[in-house]
Computed example of a mutant assay.
Amino acid sequence: MIQQIKRTKEGAIPTALGTVVTGLGIGMRSVNPALGWGIAGFGLAHVLLGAIDLVEHQ
């Protein structure tokens, strides 16, 4: 049971965090477009890596 929870958290946390950071970056584009796109790209990278972890551990 503990192993199942650990495997789920391994990919879910970066995916959720990446989603929040991507939204933050998209929202910041109106203030500073370059910084906003940079933050959004960083968040999208986390979403991608978290999704890879989720697929690998199933």
Rank of each mutant, 00 (worst) to 15 (best):
V55S: 07
L24V: 04
G23H: 12
V21L: 14
P33R: 11
A34Q: 10
I5L: 15
A40T: 06
Q4I: 01
G27C: 10
K9I: 02
G38I: 12
E10K: 15
A16S: 14
A51H: 07
I2G: 15
T22S: 10
V21D: 02
L48W: 08
P33F: 14
T15H: 02
V55M: 03
A16D: 06
H57R: 06
G50T: 04
P14I: 01
Q58Y: 03
I5F: 10
A40S: 06
L49V: 10
K6T: 03
G38H: 13
R7H: 05
T22R: 12
L54S: 09
Q58D: 04
A16Y: 10
I26N: 05
L24I: 05
L54C: 04
G23A: 12
L54I: 03
K6G: 07
S30C: 12
L54T: 05
Q58R: 15
T15V: 01
G38R: 14
D53R: 06
L35N: 00
E10D: 13
G11F: 01
R7M: 00
G41M: 10
G23C: 09
L17K: 13
I13P: 09
V55Y: 00
L35C: 06
V20F: 11
Q58E: 07
T22N: 11
L35D: 00
I26H: 11
L48R: 13
L17Y: 04
K6M: 00
A16G: 12
E10Q: 14
P14E: 00
L24F: 08
G27M: 14
N32F: 12
I39F: 08
H57M: 03
G23R: 11
D53C: 02
N32V: 09
V20I: 15
A34C: 04
T15W: 01
I39T: 03
L48H: 08
Q58F: 07
L49K: 10
A34D: 05
R7D: 02
E56S: 03
E10Y: 07
K9L: 07
V47Y: 11
V55T: 08
